[in-house]
Simulated scan of single mutants.
Amino acid sequence: MSKVVVIGLPGEQGLWVADLGNGTVSALQEPFTGTLGSADSLRGSGAAIVKGVDLALAFGSMEEIAQSHHEN
């Protein structure tokens, strides 16, 4: 089972890596090469790339999650 997730948000530059095993999130250093570079280029064109994740939701704050506003 994967324990690391790469995250990119629409309108935000750069990518982040969430290490679920260590409970950390940090910025990935550019330039991105290989498959990750290709995926980032597609993302820049508006594509959404999903692999190995069965649920992903974006929120503006932790408060929104606590209030269960994800149903909107």
Rank of each mutant, 00 (worst) to 15 (best):
S45Y: 01
L20T: 12
W16F: 14
Q29M: 08
D19M: 11
I65H: 04
D19P: 03
Q13I: 07
V6M: 01
G23S: 07
I7D: 02
T24Y: 01
G34M: 01
L36S: 08
E71Q: 08
M62D: 05
S26K: 05
W16G: 01
L20C: 05
E71N: 11
G11E: 03
A18P: 01
V53W: 03
V53A: 15
G52M: 05
N22E: 14
V50A: 11
L28P: 00
H70W: 04
G52K: 05
L15D: 06
T35I: 15
G11A: 11
A39D: 12
A58V: 15
L55N: 06
P10L: 02
D54K: 10
P31F: 14
L57H: 08
S41Q: 12
L57E: 07
A18W: 07
D40W: 07
G60K: 13
G44R: 15
I49Y: 11
L36G: 10
G21I: 07
L28Y: 11
L9R: 09
A18R: 14
T35G: 11
I49A: 02
V25K: 03
M1L: 13
L9G: 02
L57M: 10
W16N: 01
I7S: 00
V17A: 15
V17M: 07
I65L: 15
H70D: 12
M1R: 06
G14C: 13
S61Y: 06
T24S: 13
N22G: 04
V53D: 06
L55F: 14
Q13V: 14
L15F: 00
A58E: 05
S26W: 00
V6W: 08
G46A: 06
L20S: 05
L28W: 00
A58Y: 11
G14W: 05
T35F: 02
W16P: 00
M62L: 15
G37T: 09
V17G: 09
N22I: 03
A27H: 08
P10S: 07
L57D: 11
V53F: 04
G14L: 04
V6H: 03
A66H: 12
E30F: 00
L42P: 02
D54R: 07
V50T: 11
E64V: 13
G8L: 00
S2L: 05
E64R: 10
S45G: 15
S61I: 01
G8Y: 08
I7Q: 01
V53Y: 10
S45L: 11
E64P: 00
E30L: 06
V25F: 04
T24R: 03
G8C: 13
F59C: 14
L9P: 03
A56T: 01
M62T: 14
L15S: 02
S41H: 06
S41W: 00
S38R: 15
D54T: 09
E63W: 09
G21N: 10
G60S: 12
A18T: 09
T33V: 14
F59T: 03
P10Q: 12
F59L: 15
V25Q: 00
A48E: 09
Q67E: 12
E71R: 10
